[in-house]
């Protein structure tokens, strides 16, 4: 059991998820403190998205327990849903609506007051450089623009926990920097707890205060970047990862493989 002191906002014990025979998440235990930036680092298929989906009420766990701000998603999903904002790995915008409408509808679903909604929408769309394109239909946006809009939308209702599932996948380096700077600023100024997944070592190391490395459904190690390096006696996270899993994870910059991967998601059959 992870320490359950008052500063713990997410606490997960022995969490497991199997999909007809495949164990996607295998008895993982970890906790996230309120106000910290926590990263899940792991290769494709490690179980990162599956874990996030269980924390955010989208999937029902096969076993184990979850506490999100003191609530169990299985018993009080509604209370849990109030606590977080999320940027999914896969697209989740309404492409037949404009950027502004997507923001507006989100704000209404999350019961954000009109004045605040309008003001925050303008602020966020300006930061992600979409304010001038706010009245365009999302289906006419590029992949990176859609991503930026999703990030803006996830922040609109001032969540106390922000889930980011590979948020910067497919973004150019400048935009990635811009977004991370903003998220860190937000983390400081509003105390938002950030839980993100990535397979970019440098991103995890630069942004996260604590990291859990997950591979084949299991957490192989967790701690601060420095702890991970000293415990594996490695000079870099990359070496630590290779040492722990016997494999390399992947390069730092988005590769053509990433882009392929994003595209593949579009063609995946619904429901799978």
């Amino acid at each position: 059991m992870p320490d359950a002191d008052s500063s713990t906002i997410i606490s997960v014990t022995d969490l497991t998820k199997t999909f007809d025979g495949i164990t996607a998440v295998d008895h993982i235990t970890f906790s996230v403190k309120a106000g910290e930036i926590f990263a899940f680092l792991g290769p494709n298929g490690a179980g990162k998205s599956t874990t996030i989906k269980m924390l955010t009420t989208l999937l029902h766990p096969t076993g184990g327990t979850i506490s999100m701000g003191g609530h169990d998603p299985a018993d009080s999903p509604h209370k849990v849903r109030r606590t977080f904002g999320i940027v999914f790995q896969d697209p989740s915008l309404d492409e037949e609506l404009t950027a502004y409408e997507n923001m507006e509808y989100h704000g209404i679903l999350y019961n954000v007051q009109k004045d605040k909604r309008r003001q925050r929408t303008k602020e966020l769309l300006t930061i992600v450089e979409l304010w001038d394109r706010r009245d365009d239909l999302v289906k006419n946006f590029s992949g990176g623009m859609k991503r930026r809009l999703e990030i803006a939308r996830g922040l609109l209702h001032h969540p106390s926990i922000l889930f980011l599932d590979e948020p910067t996948l497919g973004l150019d380096p400048q935009t990635r920097n811009l977004i991370w700077n903003y998220i860190r600023e937000l983390n400081k100024s509003e105390g938002v707890t950030v839980f993100f997944t990535t397979h970019y070592m440098e991103e995890a190391e630069r942004v996260a205060e604590r990291i859990a490395i997950i591979d084949q459904g299991k957490i192989v190690i967790q701690g601060t970047p420095d702890e991970l390096k000293s415990r594996t006696k490695s000079a870099s996270l990359e070496d630590a990862f290779i040492g722990l899993t016997g494999r390399n994870i992947r390069t730092e910059e988005p590769s053509s493989l990433d882009r392929l991967r994003v595209r593949r998601k579009f063609f995946r059959k619904p429901g799978r």
């Binding site: 955010t56 009420t57 989208l58 509604h78 849903r81 109030r82 977080f84 999320i86 999914f88 896969d90 697209p91 989740s92 915008l93 309404d94 492409e95 989100h106 679903l109 999350y110 019961n111 619904p270 429901g271």
Partner: peptide, 19 residues
């Protein structure tokens, strides 16, 4: 509902704090 599932918007609706 199936379109929303395919294009992903269903996730946005399902995680919203709405009964």
């Amino acid at each position: 509902v199936l379109w929303d599932r395919q294009f992903g918007f269903l996730k946005e609706i399902l995680v919203a704090p709405v009964s």
